[in-house]
Write a protein that binds this DNA or RNA. Structure first.
Lengths: 208, 208
DNA sequence: TCCTTCACAGACCGACGGTCGGTCACCGAC
DNA sequence: GTCGGTGACCGACCGTCGGTCTGTGAAGGA
């Protein structure tokens, strides 16, 4: 199956070319301000080619979105799964996420535009993204064990994701992203340690 | 000044009419799917009238956004300011916010569409919304006092706002909004009590 | 070699956001 | 009152953009 026919390879190449150009434009100008004609022209193709590979503008965005998301999701999951302790895993994933927030592509595609563009498709229907399952994986040990009693996994994942997005926006707005990242780190750490200390039995919480 | 000329009253009336119709359409179909022609036709006016009052589609949305936001922001602030204790104020405002999340207008306009539509205008420039100052007001006592040491007010407000948005999205997606609201309430309460207990000196945190 | 398949071309369409010259009712000045 | 100015509103028009449709030429199995 690694041996592909010439036609398939060419088609895949143009598809990736289109996704690449689209990604560049979406990140730079945003979804609404990017014209399909512009993408097509920069790729040296005609509109027919684009619509042969993607059913519409939103589908093209979705393809870009998937690539960008997978790039960071992989790093975050890897960081989290490398830890044994559930709390440490959360902490590590959180740090990896904040690193991702320093990348313009992640901010523009995943944080800003995805909400509106994919609203009708991914949320109203049963489809789900990658972030929530990811968060669920990381948070499950906390809910399953005796800590955090009576807390729904889904709600917790949503609230956590929201908090992460909030910090992402703060970093996105800041003049100095690096410094903002450090600030966000402090806040998230305080919240994390707070929840941990208050809901852990038999653990003398370190106060300073 | 309550005595207004006929022309002014008429103009204001049409302006409010347009905002009302626009709000209805934006909430029902979302920003992108709503056509200016449709709004104009439903209002029984011509396009010229609309563009006489609003510089563009985004300006019209901003007007709707301001109205919707002010409606809920007033309720949230009132609930928060009615409390003496800072933590109780946060708790009360939080509850009022979750109530607001049950309203479709707030979800669609403020949570979903505002992020993208007002992105270029409100974020890149120095302009700020109403939510963040509001949150800052509520959170200032916590940061100023000895609790939550070393935490930046702005970051905390952003993360808190994000968490609230996350819960809002969870409620928006849920089949049973009322039940979802209750779930979100539990999660936010756990986080709140956690942070409070872990960072309050001389307060024996109630564990159950 | 033929002929099916398919990636790709590019002219075309309808819809939508936005513009602009024109019209007419209102309002202050004399 | 009437007269000139103002401004709310009209609606035809334009440019752009997402999306469609028919065509075409090369790839590849028979």
């Amino acid at each position: 199956m690694t041996v592909k026919k010439l036609r398939e390879r060419q088609a895949e190449a143009t598809r990736e070319l289109l996704v690449g150009i689209a990604r560049e434009r979406f990140v730079e100008q945003g979804y609404a301000a990017t014209a399909m004609d512009d993408i097509v022209q920069r790729a040296g193709l005609a509109k027919g080619a684009l619509y042969h590979h993607f059913s519409g503008k939103d589908a093209l965005f979705k393809a870009v979105y998937d690539v960008v998301l997978e790039e960071t999701a992989g790093a975050v999951m890897a960081a989290a799964l490398a830890e044994e302790d559930p709390w440490a895993a959360v902490r590590a994933g959180l740090s990896a996420f904040l690193d991702a927030c320093l990348l313009p592509a992640f901010r523009r595609i995943v944080i800003i535009d995805s909400v509106t563009v994919l609203a009708a498709r991914a949320w109203d229907s049963g489809t789900e993204g990658v972030e929530l399952p990811m968060l669920r994986t990381v948070l499950t040990p906390l809910v399953d064990s005796d800590v955090l009693p009576g807390v729904g996994l889904d709600v917790l994942a949503h609230v956590a994701l929201g908090g992460l997005y909030g910090s992402a926006l703060y970093i996105a707005r800041a003049a100095d992203p690096e410094a903002a990242r450090a600030e966000a780190d402090v806040v998230l750490d305080v919240i994390l340690r707070g929840v941990r200390a208050a809901n852990t039995t038999g653990d003398p919480h370190p106060n300073s």
